[in-house]
Design a protein around this nucleic acid. Sequence first.
DNA 1: TAGCAAACTCAAAGCGCTTTGAATTTCGGG
DNA 2: CCCGAAATTCAAAGCGCTTTGAGTTTGCTA
Lengths: 343, 343
Amino acid sequence: MNVNLKQLAEMLGLSQTTVSRALNGYPEVSAETRQRVLSAVRETGYRPNRAAQRLATGRAGSIGLVMPIAPGIDSDVHFGEFLAGLGEESVRHDFHFVINPSAPDDEEATFKRLAASGNVDALFLAYVRANDPRIAMLKSLSIPFVVHGRAIGQPADYPFLDIDNTAAFYDATRLLIQLGHRRIALINGPANLTFSIRRKKGLQRALEENGLSFDEDLSQHSLMTDEYGHRAMQRFLEREEPPTAVLCSSTVIALGAVRAINKAGLQIGTDISLIAHDDVLPMLKPENFSIPLTTTRSSLRAAGSRIATRLISRILKTGDYPEQELWRAELIVRASTGPAPKS
Amino acid sequence: MNVNLKQLAEMLGLSQTTVSRALNGYPEVSAETRQRVLSAVRETGYRPNRAAQRLATGRAGSIGLVMPIAPGIDSDVHFGEFLAGLGEESVRHDFHFVINPSAPDDEEATFKRLAASGNVDALFLAYVRANDPRIAMLKSLSIPFVVHGRAIGQPADYPFLDIDNTAAFYDATRLLIQLGHRRIALINGPANLTFSIRRKKGLQRALEENGLSFDEDLSQHSLMTDEYGHRAMQRFLEREEPPTAVLCSSTVIALGAVRAINKAGLQIGTDISLIAHDDVLPMLKPENFSIPLTTTRSSLRAAGSRIATRLISRILKTGDYPEQELWRAELIVRASTGPAPKS
DNA sequence: TAGCAAACTCAAAGCGCTTTGAATTTCGGG
DNA sequence: CCCGAAATTCAAAGCGCTTTGAGTTTGCTA
């Protein structure tokens, strides 16, 4: 049914070489011949077989991701948004992704398999953990890669794109301190992920620089869902001296936190201040909360798009991009922050 | 650096044939030889090149998806959850996905390209539209596929998995009617998607069967985000005779609707009843809403997993699954539904 | 009109694997 | 101790493409 190069060439009375060259834009084909080839392609609906192309060139036009998955593991909203960013850029260059699901304890092996399979031209790693062994492994793999995030406790000598999480939460905390807050709580992402660690550090640093002490009990780690946000906030509010302000690592967490605050009959922005990190999820905009949320903003989608750009330029050897980028999150003040209540 | 089959065979003093057979579990290899081969693989870290394998066998161990994407298009939370389901099952069979981003108006061509590329063994289609031309196209493609959802206005003579959306919203509406509600609003998904159309039909049918008329003005279509849910609900509440009950096509929509209701000073479950469709997103559980939500429930993730199962069994020609499945959503009554207020 | 570079086109090799059909070895029975 | 069947192993072809190195035309210049 489907035509292949050989048949196409035969139909045209040309050699495979010429047809291939005509298609791939080589200069040594006469304009007339190229036209003939192109219109034959249109008529027959010829599409080159990617596997063969891949085998011949060593390039596949694809980016590989490993998706940790297991019956118990929840999907992460943020993943979809990131993917959208990757896709947005990839589609321009006719690239695709190969997503390899993997049991969480088998991720390294999956990466290796993916790289060796020849199915992908580049790899991408996210959800970086503190001293992440996967990075060293990627470096050993001789295939381009970009890390979204950065490890901690090992030299940053690999290509990455990260946001300055420490600075983001440092700034947020400073704002709260300026408003008079003293007890500032944190509902963070999972404890082993570096962005969580850095955000906590940002909070801690700002507190200490202002002569305040960091209270470990006011810091919670959890999955970034509504439910956990709610639970954590509830627990904070049950304390003898509840915090007067809270930082949330995601607007999804904030959702639950806001609910807990409302339930407790407190008013956001006056009784308690809240700042969330905003990944710019289209599903959930901080400005649409009943009390619009003050946020540290950095678009996850933009990050995805940028990483695709860099990866693709590496593969195609076009353009020249910095190997390491640290984006600054914007602090956007809305109504959820206000002066600390007099106590 | 990486070994290939030829080198491996050379090292072992065997032919490529034998090594290949040993690896792929063919019976005509002596147990001893097989052991030698396997341990050599372990030592060298040999991984077969998938592109070559693909070229030789015609199979790749992959499922192809087309992801519509463009700078303006929002990512959909539901997509990630579905992917998790697909992944959960795929990982068991060492399958992967090839995701091809595509401009929305180029989807058909992208499907064709994907199928012809030889990169995938099966295709998957979601977000079915009313009279979706993509289905006819898939049928013409001679590659297995499963549709998540069903078209309307064309024979259902293709493999699909869908939930009975009509029945779900019919049941939900009946419950509301039994509770005395007469003005029931609907905040639905995009107007061109078949699940939206069917849900509306369910509502309509239940109303008419009970001698109530369907009011087109009480039905809104929108993207399934918090923001649109909020906006739609707000508009409903501004009417002279606001509805006493509302159906939401997603818990994400419900989120915004609840907010609008609260803002209007109304009490959910007494002043106004709400039923949402629950895709079982881990991020947002209906039982955790401040007033737990009555829902029609059907796990999107389970659907993804099931579709992967069917697709893979088709590819591998193992097992035998029904070609068409219509799942029933469960109606789960919680606190957000109550008797209609006396007016 | 010969001669030469430039412009085209081609045949064939090779990417790494599977699989066919044939060759070789092993083994039990006569 | 030979023979045919069963058990192993192998060489080579082929999957569909790119690319090298060489061959053929064409268009000018001298």
